[in-house]
């Protein structure tokens, strides 16, 4: 059985006095355990909407999202979520932020303490435990947010453009760190991104969604050994191929609406 299934999901936004806007229509795919999946597509293709439905922050208009066969209803600690702006609580120290991820779990205090120590290590945040988010660099904030999402031992990790706000020079560095952290945690990941090379670098599989009702344009397994070499020819081939697919995904909308 798939870990996470998108089972005929349709999402329609209705606004008074406006045509109903179909963002996603009858979307269907499965994600196997331990895979790193990227949802790639032009902006407005509904990829973030899909991710928030996986997070349980909004419900599909019809269809279901299943985690281990059980329909997702509302947010839960089974699904760790990293927001685009990280949403670290600014009033809590790094340590308290990360610990909050397991605050409501059944672990004993001692287990929590040990886990916290390990997460801080994985996220390379030793020495910064008592700092507040505002005192951290963007990279440290990202690692703290991932550590917090991993703390509750979720079955899947959902990442909403986790590097969207980061400048180009930092991006590659942070991609390395992100890969390191999720590899260590051996967890299923779904990441929304519009950065093609980022998706090739991190994913086992890239799903390209179209602007036209979020149709799956392509489902591309990335068959490269890790850690990936961004300068290799094969890497470039994937980037080239996916760039073309995204372009097509964008044109689908232009074809149908104009």
């Amino acid at each position: 059985m798939a870990r996470l299934s998108v089972d005929g999901v349709t999402k329609v936004f209705e606004e008074k006095g406006k045509e109903p806007h179909v963002v996603l229509e009858n979307l269907r795919f499965d994600i196997e355990e331990g895979q790193f999946i990227s949802l790639l597509g032009p902006s407005g293709c509904g990829k973030t909407t899909l991710l928030t439905m996986m997070g349980g922050f909004q419900a599909p208009t019809s269809g279901k999202i299943l985690l281990d066969g059980v329909p997702v209803e509302g947010p839960s600690s089974e699904r760790g979520y990293v927001f685009q702006n990280y949403a670290l609580f600014p009033w809590m120290t790094v340590e308290k932020n990360v610990a909050y991820g397991m605050k409501f779990s059944s672990m004993s205090a001692k287990e929590k303490q040990e886990k916290l120590k390990r997460l801080i290590e994985i996220a390379h945040l030793q020495g910064h435990e008592k700092k507040y988010p505002i005192q951290l660099s963007g990279g440290m904030q990202q690692r703290a947010a991932v550590a917090r999402a991993l703390a509750g031992q979720p079955k899947v990790l959902l990442l909403d453009e986790p590097l969207g706000a980061v400048d180009f020079q930092m991006r590659e560095l942070m991609q390395n760190e992100l890969e390191h952290m999720v590899r260590e945690a051996k967890i299923t990941v779904v990441m929304v991104t519009h950065d093609v090379s980022e998706s090739v670098f991190l994913s086992d599989r890239v799903i390209v969604l179209s602007s036209n009702k979020g149709r799956v344009v392509a489902d591309v397994p990335i068959d490269l050994p890790r850690p990936r070499d961004r300068s290799s020819e094969e890497f470039d081939k994937y980037v080239f191929k996916l760039t073309n697919l995204v372009r097509r995904a964008f044109q689908e909308r232009t074809d149908t609406t104009f």
Binding site: G56, N85, A87, Y100, K103, F104, A151
Partner: peptide, 17 residues
């Protein structure tokens, strides 16, 4: 930021928390 509330909910926090 509504994402703070969403984040808390996704970590298992209830209304009181």
């Amino acid at each position: 930021d509504p994402n703070y509330i969403n984040a808390a909910r996704s970590m298992g926090a209830g209304t009181v928390a």
